[in-house]
Design a protein around this nucleic acid. Structure first.
Lengths: 191, 191
DNA sequence: CGAAAATTTGACATGACTCAACTGGAGTGG
DNA sequence: CCACTCCAGTTGAGTCATGTCAAATTTTCG
């Protein structure tokens, strides 16, 4: 079964016919490992659903340091949401960490679907609510947990991700240096 | 003009009649300074719109330290969103920092309104999108900026808030101790 | 096998924390 | 009007986690 159908119909009731209408607005694209599917300073009026592969979004600060914002694997949405939602130029890079197969949809087409299939706006709202709740939780964890605890939480929350991702990307996601992560990993092994 | 009408109609077109229907689902409540309008471990199937006053939401970690998540003044929504969206028990306290006048709406009534006034779901989605975009931005700032820069950004972004709020609440929002904030303020004065 | 990439280790610097003490202002009661 | 208390904010000293920079080691992959 199509991963996107599964994803949407796990949140709202969706007929096969309706899904056909939805899928018509999507474009299936393949990208190679290391390719950047979004670069900073672009108009980003589209977002992606991952059918296969692994990606990360990150931004580069003034010192040239990369900060990973999000990872995505099969069954996840990914995009430059600040840009997508506000219409401003992109600030993120989105990079394929593996060869990827993605479904791309333009914002205007996606929002047009709200009119044809109103309950799709409920799906969108539910997704946003979950995103906001999890971002809130992540913020809370950021303030509450030690770096070590954040790392342990990350690998226990996303065991599938951890195996597919370099440690320095995890470090960049946790907001620490690879050296610090290495020391934390060592201290966990010893204990 | 009613602040809530102004808020909604700045995002979507809204007739007076429709607003009457919406307002019927709200309850106006007054609270005193220092009152907690939400405490942890409650069911929170409602949220608030601020007509007057100043509030903050915060949680208490295992060490007993308070972490301020959000401030709200006139024209802002506030609630325990993780609890509201997920249906789980609350984790936040929401405290009145001044005497407050609030509009309360229950989740089920609010969502019922989506059926009567479908474009209200667009309003909800737009609010969520902005919330998510600003939370993303806040996360980015957290990783990019020094504590001093975060403080300077806070007071320049919310000059009205700063005057109404104790420094130790700002410190708690920035995730630092009041002592550290004091030292940062001193270093800014000297420079 | 050999080169490049990823990870680990060491030495030192730094920013924030903790804990304790002190300052200054607002409000209160004698 | 003064003494007292409370609260917010400031200051000082010592500690610790993480950063930086450089080098060594291990892993990956053509």
């Amino acid at each position: 079964m199509n991963l996107l159908f599964k994803h949407i119909s796990s949140r709202i009731n969706l007929s096969d016919d309706e899904f056909v209408i939805i899928l018509q607005q999507f474009e299936e694209l393949k990208f190679s490992k290391n390719e950047l599917i979004i670069k900073p300073n672009q108009m980003v009026d589209y977002k992606f659903f991952v059918l296969k592969g692994c990606l990360r979004s990150y931004f580069v600060d003034l010192s040239g340091i990369e900060h990973t914002v999000q990872f995505a694997i099969e069954d996840w949405w990914i995009g430059d949401y600040p840009a997508y939602f506000t219409g401003k130029k992109s600030i993120l890079n989105i990079e394929c960490l593996e060869d990827c197969t993605l479904l791309k949809v333009k914002k205007e087409n996606w929002e047009q679907l709200y009119k044809e299939i109103p309950k799709l706006e409920s799906y969108a709202r539910i997704q946003l609510e979950r995103g906001l709740a999890s971002t809130h939780q992540k913020n809370i964890n950021n303030h509450t947990m030690s770096t070590r605890e954040k790392y342990e939480k990350f690998i226990s929350s996303y065991p599938k991700l951890e195996q597919r991702i370099k440690n320095y990307h995890i470090a960049s996601y946790l907001g620490i240096t690879p050296e610090s992560l290495s020391r934390i990993r060592k201290s966990i092994l010893v204990a």
